[in-house]
Amino acid sequence: MPLPDGNNFIEKFAKSFYNLFDTPATIIKEKIVAPNQKTYPWYHQKFRRVPTIDQCYTDDPICVFEADMQYRRDRQVDSEILSILRQRFEDCVLYETPDHMEKCKHLLQQYEEGSTDWFTKYGDLGAYHDVKVAYMKQKHRMVWERRHGPVGSGMKEN
């Protein structure tokens, strides 16, 4: 006559021996490790947004450094987005070769608009620039537009 499950002495001993090691490890994992673990639902780390350079005090080097690092990350992201747009257009041209001018026109327009926006923000700054240089470029552009109208429209008459 077989014994019911759980009444066997060897099974009870093996289960209690297992629980002797498993229970503390499970408690530590559930109560300490899991609540303090940083989990991201994406594959890259998401940095918190910091004050921009125009919100920093002039004598606060930490704020300026954080704004510069955020600017560099943003520029890198914008450059990658532009690279993806360019790659999409090139892939479309390769795939639709005979009549790619009409089938890939919307991708070319997206890429040209993106590259224009990228150049407006980051172009003509030189190889070694920081957030202050980019901020001054933006400020000078805004002053120009206030005085002369949108860039590229010619100078307005006074």
Rank of each mutant, 00 (worst) to 15 (best):
P2W: 05
P2A: 15
L3R: 11
P4N: 08
P4Q: 11
G6S: 06
N7C: 12
N8R: 15
F9K: 09
I10Q: 06
F13C: 10
A14Q: 13
S16V: 07
F21W: 10
T23G: 03
T23Q: 08
P24W: 06
A25G: 07
I27H: 08
I27N: 08
I28N: 08
E30A: 14
K31A: 13
I32V: 14
A34V: 10
K38G: 04
K38A: 10
Y40I: 11
Y40H: 11
Y43L: 10
H44F: 06
H44A: 09
R48S: 04
V50F: 03
I53L: 12
I53E: 04
Q55S: 14
C56I: 03
Y57D: 04
T58H: 12
D60L: 09
E66R: 06
Q70M: 02
R72G: 03
R73A: 02
R73K: 15
S79A: 13
S79D: 07
Q87Y: 03
R88P: 01
F89S: 01
E90N: 15
D91T: 11
C92G: 08
Y95M: 02
Y95K: 15
E96V: 06
D99M: 08
H100R: 11
C104R: 04
H106Y: 11
L108H: 07
Q109L: 13
Q110F: 01
Y111V: 06
E113M: 03
T116W: 02
Y122T: 03
D124F: 10
L125S: 07
G126I: 03
G126K: 06
Y128F: 10
Y128C: 05
K132V: 01
V133G: 13
A134N: 05
A134L: 05
A134C: 07
Y135E: 05
M136T: 02
K139S: 06
H140W: 07
H140D: 09
M142I: 02
R146D: 14
H148S: 12
G149W: 07
K156S: 13
E157D: 11
N158P: 02
